[in-house]
């Protein structure tokens, strides 16, 4: 569904991505893992068009999309949810979610997707008339993901949805990502929470210094000694314990 070849990108003269190769299969969760400053967010921005790639190709759904304006890419069904949990605080939760459907005009489809979003995140339905400014961090993240889903994307890219959230909220978010995949939306998940991401994902990439450092099936990566040493810590028991909660 998404094929990235030799992608170079950066800000101004500073290069961040130095030739990323990555593929995401339809109907799966593909995880991109790595620490701070390794180029994860830059990768998503270069895919979604918020920054223009210097070099390389991005192919979505069989067609090249690199260099297109972000709104054009959204209309092709590829939506990015950014990291900042940025919403319109003075608007109600409902209005914020509705903004995500800006590109659509099919009333019935929008109504159906509202129900879909509320089924993933019932707490948003409870607060639908409240100002978005009163929501907690986890609820804001749900709102941002819900808003992204309202464009009815074929694929959604999530930039560190678990960052700065309480453990319980992290669990809720990951559970809903699991349901989003089950309902047929492909997911590209950028995460620092390597354990949770690998438990959820089908396939994983580890990014380091702007290139793909390691890749493989998620279940192989989670047992890989290098990954375990560098990113996981803890014991196998911790891992299986967390797996049971998903």
């Amino acid at each position: 569904m998404l094929k990235i070849k030799d992608l170079h990108a950066g800000y101004g003269r500073i290069q961040i991505l130095a030739g990323v190769n990555l593929e995401a299969e339809e109907g799966q969760v593909t995880a991109v893992l790595g620490g701070n400053g390794t180029g994860k967010s830059t990768l998503l921005k270069a895919i979604s068009g918020l920054i223009v790639p210097w070099n390389g190709s991005v192919e979505f759904d069989g067609e090249p999309v690199e260099g297109l304006r972000p709104d054009r890419i959204v209309r092709r069904g590829l939506v990015q949810v950014t990291q900042g949990k940025e919403v319109y605080p003075a608007m109600s939760v409902e209005e914020n979610i509705k903004l995500g459907a800006y590109v659509r005009s099919d009333r019935q489809g929008i109504a159906d997707d509202f129900e879909r979003v509320y089924s993933y995140f019932p707490i948003l339905k409870e607060h639908r008339k409240s100002h978005a400014g009163i929501l907690s961090g986890g609820q804001l993240q749900m709102l941002c993901i819900g808003r992204g889903l309202m464009a009815n994307p074929k694929m959604i890219m999530l930039d560190e949805p678990s960052s700065a959230l309480a453990p319980q909220a992290v669990m809720d978010i990951f559970r809903s990502i699991n349901r989003i995949r089950r309902d047929g939306t492909t997911v590209l998940l950028v995460e620092q929470n390597v354990r949770m991401a690998l438990l959820l994902a089908n396939y994983g990439y580890v990014i380091k210094d702007g290139v793909i450092h390691m890749e493989g099936l998620a279940r192989d990566l989670i047992n890989d000694d290098n990954v375990r040493l560098s990113y996981l810590g803890g014991t196998v028991a911790d891992t299986t314990g967390a797996a049971a909660t998903l």
Binding site: S48, P70, D71, T82, E86, Y102, R147, A151
Partner: peptide, 14 residues
């Protein structure tokens, strides 16, 4: 409010 977010909602920002 935010040009990036508006872009990602499919709004023609320019």
């Amino acid at each position: 409010r935010n040009k990036d977010i508006a872009f990602l909602m499919g709004i023609n920002v320019p």
